[in-house]
């Protein structure tokens, strides 16, 4: 389906004037697994980044003057968008993997349809906290192995076992630098989300 062109003005790409609804998916995964690359690759607009301030109990570094024992750190949030039809737009939020960003996580997960978890076969154990977090939040997810050039290609069955995935959790592979491949990974996730939900009467 052809979507009406969005309008660009001063570096801002507005949505088409027919778009009135939005929804979101999370692109999750540990640090440097390729979340930003994935979002960059599929987004219809230049991917955007915002920085959220997080207040943490300080370990004595980076103290902000006048606020003892508190540290302000920032966490970058990358996101992109895909106009799906004349009315609906999908936002993709690259979700920071570190558990210390939990408050931001809750916020992002709320209202999300599901999550695509990118994994790197060289660092599978680093995905465990992310999967645990998603399960805790009750957010359905699919897993995609991001195929890095130099990584040894593991059979998906071995990955499934290593990650201890439920039998019905979709597992696929993708190349986060390739748009079609990344879109297919998103389709795998959404097909799973669709199939697990009963039609509304």
């Amino acid at each position: 389906m052809d979507c009406a062109p969005s309008s660009e003005q001063g570096g801002v790409t507005y949505l088409s004037d027919t778009v009135t609804r939005s929804t979101k998916l999370l692109i999750a995964g540990h640090f440097s697994v390729g979340k930003t690359t994935f979002v960059d690759c599929v987004s219809e607009v230049e991917p955007l980044r915002t920085e959220e301030a997080m207040t943490q109990v300080s370990a004595g570094v980076d103290d902000v003057a006048g606020l003892p024992h508190k540290t302000h750190t920032t966490v970058a949030l990358d996101f992109g968008r895909l106009t799906l039809n004349e009315e609906l737009v999908l936002y993709l939020f690259g979700t920071p993997g570190q558990p210390r960003f939990l408050p931001l996580w809750h916020d992002l997960a709320k209202g999300a349809l599901g999550a695509l978890v990118l994994v790197d076969t060289r660092r599978l154990t680093e995905s465990d906290p992310i999967l645990a977090l998603l399960e805790e939040q009750g957010l359905p997810y699919a897993v995609a192995v991001n195929q890095f050039d130099r990584a040894h290609r593991h059979p998906l069955d071995a990955v499934r076992e290593a990650l201890d995935l439920a039998d019905d959790t979709p597992l696929t592979s993708c190349d986060a630098r390739d748009r079609t491949s990344s879109l297919h990974a998103l389709i795998t996730l959404v097909r799973f989300l669709f199939n697990r939900m009963e039609p509304t009467p």
């Binding site: 389906m1 895909l82 609906l88 999908l90 389709i187």
Partner: peptide, 12 residues
Amino acid sequence: LKEVLDGLRALV
């Protein structure tokens, strides 16, 4: 979800 699925498929 059907709408999202159809939308994504149309982009490939």
